[in-house]
């Protein structure tokens, strides 16, 4: 399964970026191997509006099964829901810890 995470740095030791649309990077992680399969620089980070829509659209285009963030805005929720992508929220931790939480079903699912 592929999951999409908002991160401060492009590494498994990085912390989760609490602002989804304005995260510095997005990473796509293979949850079975626990490895980063793709790292994406957020080119929309300084846009005035619509960064959530852009970030959600990137996740949609990466064809991921789920998205992990600290919190999602209403527009992100709307886009990801329409795409049928599962959403999970987590406390700000390292990506390694979050992947462990994911595997152990410890993340909270957003409806």
């Amino acid at each position: 399964m592929k999951t999409f995470i908002s991160v401060k740095e492009s590494s498994l030791d990085s912390m989760l970026d609490e602002r989804f649309g304005r995260a510095a990077y997005f990473i796509v992680v293979d949850t079975d191997s626990g490895e980063i399969v793709k790292s994406i620089n957020n080119e929309y980070i300084n846009d005035a509006h619509g960064v959530g829509i852009k970030a959600a659209s990137i996740a949609v285009n990466e064809n991921v099964d789920s998205v992990i963030g600290h919190n999602f805005g209403p527009k992100v929720l709307e886009v990801l829901k329409a795409a049928g992508i599962k959403m999970y929220t987590s406390e700000v931790k390292t990506i390694k810890d979050i992947i462990d939480d994911y595997k152990n079903n410890k993340l909270s699912a957003t409806l």
Partner: peptide, 11 residues
């Protein structure tokens, strides 16, 4: 330019 659209091919 205003990120006013989201298009999802799959669904």
């Amino acid at each position: 330019q205003f990120s006013a659209l989201a298009v999802i091919e799959k669904t």
